[in-house]
Design a protein around this nucleic acid. Structure first.
Lengths: 243, 243
DNA sequence: ACAAAAGTGTTTTAGATACACCCATGG
DNA sequence: CCATGGGTGTATCTAAAACACTTTTGT
């Protein structure tokens, strides 16, 4: 039997997945489809989310939602904002959907985002018809989910400049150029390869491995890993005022 | 008649007020007191907060709460986190209080913080017995409000390094040393006056006025103001990766 | 041998840091 | 005239920015 739900509080999850091959930052969305008497009433995409249970924390709800969608646990997650406008679920399709599902139109959602690798998710036979979309090329979205995604993206852009969360989007072993590509994808900027390379290699917590890429069709690159342990040991808060 | 409340969703407000005279960053707290048959059951402090109304946004709830407590409107506010652990209101005093007030023990709160000047609030005859406390010397707090305050403070510390929100805590006309004192209070650090002064004066949106302090007992200092307009005009996002 | 991506150095410029004394004013 | 806080200048160092060619490898 399902635990008791809180009917007016949900958690919505923006699942960011980086595709290292296409160099694309993607968002995982599920299909929202409803038809009646041959007529398609609702046909768009939404974030995955669910009501909070009476006996769980918000973090637990988020973890549960991700696991239900992808099977994954222990991924980086961040609660970034609550959305609670009274009109956030009130466009026509949303009302049809809500009536059909029987939940509260005045629902407040606590939004999280997750950072993981597209490759880690197997979407074959996904029961929600989940699909990856580039964050810069989203489909038609239900509810206020476009807004939620864009705010998550903004937070990610800011945060990746000051915290080493970028490595959550990459495999354990990566090349310098892959990190650069990722920054460029997220931030939508061009970075000078020489300067970037020097800067990154200088960090003591970016560790050169005794390994190179295998199975690439051109010159294989040096592999590196990120040591969270070393990062935290040497972390020193700097109070640089930059206004 | 009071609008309909959402019984399990509240907004709590961390009201930061800077006292330019004592150079103290303070938090405004209200008294929580309950006695029965001569026995004091609850006697501590809490944040101000209230349930969200059915027909208002979360921002509107926060604004309303601040107005009710201080009479002030149009102050800088920021929604910074939602707190929703099932056990967040379950220590003994909290349960007594909740039973007495008749609200839901599984309440999720959306926490905001406000930035203003201690001087702008008149606490004479305040109906909530509101009182300022230095953020570094808080009294005994009910619910999970100490945690909420500390998280708000962390967010403020981070944010004041990269956004010009510091000026929300100062009068319109201020001296360079007042800004320095404020940074030092918030961050708990010492700053070199010459370097700080040079750096601040160089900014084009820090405007020297044709005015000096009046009524001070020593050499009056040059007054400056902050131009949000100029700041926004010249604002250029920098993508400095600092991990 | 060639295509493709990996990798490499130097110069300039901007800003952070460190540091100690004189000055203007009100009392 | 003196106590107090306001205000000032320079030298060093670190890191960012700008910039183009050579090397390695798989095919």
């Amino acid at each position: 039997m399902e635990p008791e739900k809180i009917l007016n509080i949900s958690v919505d999850c923006v699942v960011f997945g980086y595709d290292i091959n296409t160099k694309s930052l993607n968002v995982l969305l599920i299909k929202r489809f409803l038809e009646r008497e041959e007529e398609v009433l609702v046909n768009d995409y939404v974030l995955t989310g669910y009501h909070v249970y009476q006996k769980e924390t918000l973090d637990e709800t988020a973890t549960r939602v991700l696991k239900e969608l992808t099977g994954l646990t222990d991924q980086y997650k961040k609660q970034f904002k609550a959305f609670g406008n009274p009109d956030r679920l009130t466009n026509e399709k949303d009302l049809i959907w809500i009536r059909n599902e029987g939940f509260n139109s005045r629902t407040i959602t606590i939004a999280y985002y997750f950072l993981l690798k597209t490759d880690d998710v197997d979407l074959k036979n996904n029961k929600y018809q989940a699909k990856w979309f580039p964050v810069n090329d989203l489909p038609e979205l239900g509810f206020d989910h476009e807004k939620i995604i864009l705010e998550a993206y903004e937070d990610l852009k800011t945060k990746c400049l000051s915290e080493p969360i970028i490595f959550k989007l990459l495999p354990d072993k990566f090349t310098i150029n892959e990190v650069q590509d990722l920054y460029q994808s997220i931030l939508g900027i061009e970075i000078d390869n020489r300067n970037f390379r020097r800067k990154l290699i200088k960090k003591k917590y970016i560790i050169a491995l005794d390994e190179k890429q295998v199975g690439v069709s051109k010159r294989p690159a040096q592999l590196y890993m990120f040591s969270l342990d070393l990062y935290e040991k040497m972390f020193k808060k700097n109070y640089l005022i930059n206004i």
